[in-house]
């Protein structure tokens, strides 16, 4: 009951920080999709690029998030605004699932279908946009789903460098040893993650080809 009252009393700030959180996750996911899908396509079509691209994305994934925020802090244009920095870091983390699933999705398209398309005289571009990407879409989307869920969690850490988001509550609560404050950040974050997971999962099933 106390918790509910606390939530009600602070609902304006909760909504504001949730919106900030969504913005961090949304923009970084969008960037990861814009960069990751083309990289996934390149590594699926030209095997030479497969190892370096996936390797680099893998290495980024292994850097602890707090350390990555720290590394990026001194970079001139980035370091001047915490949200830029947080978005870049989140984008880098989101790249791996997007690239890997794009790669897997395209490589998973039935070779007979691709060969038939090529034999019928589809150009590479037509083959990509009319055959490969549509057939890989549900696999790519499941990569985006993983990226979003991970980003929602990671974005709470962005508050450590002052980028805002629901992490503000959590860090404040930790400092003041106040569980209600921690939950005011953790619960909306969990709800965000679950609804993103559910919504994208539903979309993914709808787009899956029989």
């Amino acid at each position: 009951m106390n918790l509910l009252r606390f939530f009600w009393q602070n609902h304006e700030q909760i909504v504001e920080l949730t919106a900030e959180h969504l913005w961090l996750v949304g923009i970084s996911t969008l960037l990861a999709v814009l960069v990751g899908i083309p990289l996934g396509i390149v590594s699926a079509h030209w095997p030479v690029w497969n190892k370096p691209v996936l390797g680099a994305a893998n290495i980024i994934q292994t850097i602890p998030s707090l350390a990555l925020f720290g590394f990026l802090l001194p970079v001139p244009w980035l370091g001047s605004r915490a949200d830029r920095l947080a978005i870049l870091a989140l984008t880098l983390y989101a790249l791996l699932p997007v690239i890997r699933n794009t790669y897997t999705g395209i490589r998973g398209v039935d070779p007979a279908v691709v060969e038939a398309g090529r034999g019928m005289g589809l150009t590479d571009r037509q083959l990509l946009f009319q055959v490969e990407l549509p057939l890989a879409l549900s696999v790519i989307l499941s990569g985006v789903r993983v990226a979003v869920v991970v980003s929602v969690g990671l974005a709470t850490i962005a508050a450590a460098i002052g980028a805002g988001g629901l992490g503000e509550f959590i860090f404040r609560g930790l400092a003041m040893v106040n569980n209600q404050l921690i939950l005011a950040g953790a619960i909306p974050a969990a709800v965000l993650a679950l609804s993103a997971d559910f919504g994208l999962g539903w979309l993914e099933r709808r787009l899956r080809t029989p």
């Binding site: 007979a112 279908v113 060969e115 038939a116 398309g117 019928m120 055959v131 029989p210």
Partner: peptide
Amino acid sequence: ISLRRSIGYVIQEIGLFPH
């Protein structure tokens, strides 16, 4: 591309586009 479009091609696995 125009060579291939002027030639019909049928394979065993058929390769119909499932979508």
